[in-house]
Design a binder for these strands. Structure first.
Lengths: 201, 201
DNA sequence: GTCTATACTCTGATAGAC
DNA sequence: GTCTATCAGAGTATAGAC
C-alpha cells in the first residue's frame, strides 16, 4: 500500500478504515458489505475502491494495524521490574484495550474464530516468538521464588481470555449484569484480586 | 418445526444440522453458504430447503439445541454439595464442553460477538435468571466462610472466559503452544490450580 | 478524485419434471 | 423426496463521464 500524499487522501483513507473497523468487527468479514462501509464512511462505493483495491485489502490493512497495538503491552513486560507488578500491569493494559478498543478485539476474535486465514503467519511467528520470550522471564521469576510456579504459557492465555472476554462477549456481560453496572470497573477489581492470589509465591 | 416421521427424514435432518454446525461455526452465519452445507451433508441445495424452509431456520434450530447443552452444567451446581467441589465440577464440565463440542462453542461465540441478534431473548431471560439464581448460592457459600468472598457473577464470567477460550481460540492456542502439547489436558491442570487458589477461604 | 451506470458473480430460494 | 433448471436480489468490482 503506497502512502497517501494529499490531506484529502489521508482523511478519506482514515475515514474508510474507521468505518470498516465498525462494520467488520460487528458483522465479520463476509457479513460486512462495501455498501455499509461506504455509508458509514460517507463516501460512494466506487470511491472506496479508489482508495483500496478491494474489500480484502481494507480488511488486511486493519488486521496489520491491529497486531502491533495488540502485542505492545506484552512487549513492555520487563525482566528487571517487580514480577507481580509487571504481570498486573500487563493484565491491566490488556483490560484497557478491551475497554477502549472493543472493535479491534472483536475484529481479532472474528479472525481467530475462523481459523485466522489472514493472520496465521503472524500468530505462528511474531506472536508465538513473543510468548516464548516472555515465558522465559516468567519461568525465571518462578525459579527465583518471586511468583508461584505454574505453566507460563497458560498464565498468559488466562490473561488473554479473562480480559478479552469483556470486549468480545460484551453483549452477554451487560445482559447478565443488568442495569447499573460498570463491567470494566468491576472486572478490574476482580482480576486484580484473582491475580494477586494466583501469583503469590 | 414439525418433527419428521420417516427414518429417512430423521437421518437427513440430522445430516443437515451436523453439516450446518460444521459450516456455521467455521464461517459465521453470513459466511456460510447453502452450497457448502449441502455438499458437506451430501445433499442437493434444493433438497436442503425441502427439510428446512430457509438458511435462517437451520441456524435457529442449531442455536436452540445448543442453549440447553450450554446451560446444563451450571444448572447442576447444587447448594447442598461441597462448595469448592461443586465449582470445580462446573468448571471441568465447561472445559469438557469446549473440548468435545468446540463447534458449538464457536457457533455461540460468533452469535454473541455479533450482538446475539438471534438469541438475545435467551441471554436476557433464561441465562440471566440462571446466573442470578446460582449467584445466590455462591454468596451463601461466601457468607458461610466456605469459599473466599468475591463478586459471584464475575466468578462465573471467569469460568466461561477461561474454558471457552480453549475452544474459540483453539487455532491460536495450538499455534502458540506448538507441537507436542495437549491443550485441554494442560488447561485442566492449570484451571484446577487456579480455582483452588482463588476459592480457598 | 468522485460520481453514475453497469458488468458479472454468487447465493438464497422456487418451479416443475420425475 | 429428490433432482435440474432457473429466478431475483445482493454484492464486488469496473468503465467512463465529469
Amino acid at each position: 500500500m503506497s502512502r497517501p500524499k494529499t490531506r484529502i487522501q489521508q482523511k478519506n483513507s482514515q475515514a474508510i478504515l474507521e468505518a470498516a473497523l465498525d462494520v467488520f468487527s460487528a458483522q465479520g468479514f463476509r457479513g460486512a458489505t462495501l455498501d455499509q462501509i461506504a455509508e458509514v464512511a460517507g463516501l460512494s462505493k466506487p470511491n472506496l475502491l479508489y482508495y483500496f483495491p478491494s474489500k480484502e485489502a481494507i480488511h488486511e490493512t486493519l488486521l496489520k494495524r491491529l497486531l502491533d497495538t495488540w502485542l505492545d503491552p506484552l512487549r513492555e513486560m520487563k525482566a528487571d521490574g517487580d514480577p507481580i507488578a509487571e504481570i498486573m500491569t500487563y493484565m491491566r493494559k490488556k483490560l484497557e484495550l478491551s475497554q477502549h478498543y472493543p472493535r479491534e478485539s472483536r475484529l481479532f476474535a472474528n479472525e481467530i474464530l475462523q481459523g485466522a486465514p489472514r493472520i496465521r503467519f503472524a500468530i505462528e511467528g511474531e506472536l508465538k516468538d513473543l510468548v516464548a520470550e516472555k515465558s522465559k522471564i516468567l519461568v525465571a521469576w518462578m525459579e527465583a521464588g518471586r511468583i508461584a510456579r505454574m505453566d507460563p504459557v497458560h498464565l498468559i492465555f488466562s490473561i488473554w481470555a479473562l480480559t478479552q472476554h469483556y470486549a468480545d462477549f460484551d453483549m452477554q456481560v451487560r445482559a447478565v449484569l443488568g442495569e447499573g453496572h460498570d463491567p470494566f470497573a468491576e472486572a478490574g477489581g476482580f482480576l486484580d484480586m484473582l491475580y494477586q492470589k494466583l501469583l503469590a509465591p
